[in-house]
């Protein structure tokens, strides 16, 4: 895994790019949680998910037929990441190097 971190802000974008085709769970600010395969991400951290499954389907029945979605970055509260695909040492080094100064 080779990162090409640029200073200021694109670090987390790079992290998401390395996680494409991995399963993630996106929790939105309206408490909706969506698990799916991360297909793409952009600089605003907008996210495209495939093969999605809503955590609490009973509460969101309208989501049952939805198979993929685009999530605007600003409505995201958390993204749960697959920890086995996150190199924490690399992250810390990159953050120290490229951290906002």
């Amino acid at each position: 895994m080779r990162h090409n971190f640029c200073p200021l802000g694109s670090l987390i974008f790079s992290v998401f790019k390395t996680l494409t085709d991995q399963q993630v769970t996106v929790e939105l600010k309206n408490d909706l949680s969506i698990t799916g395969v991360l297909k793409s991400v952009d600089q605003f951290l907008n996210i495209r998910l495939d093969s999605i499954k809503v955590l609490d389907e009973a509460r969101h029945p309208h989501m049952m037929a939805v198979k993929n979605c685009f999530i605007r970055g600003s409505v995201v509260r958390y993204v749960q990441l697959p920890s086995e695909h996150v190199d924490t040492q690399l992250l810390e080094d990159a953050t120290r190097r490229g951290a906002p100064t």
Partner: peptide, 11 residues
């Protein structure tokens, strides 16, 4: 959305 804008130059 203020979070979409890049951080400002250093103070």
């Amino acid at each position: 959305m203020e979070d979409s804008t890049p951080p400002p130059p250093p103070e």
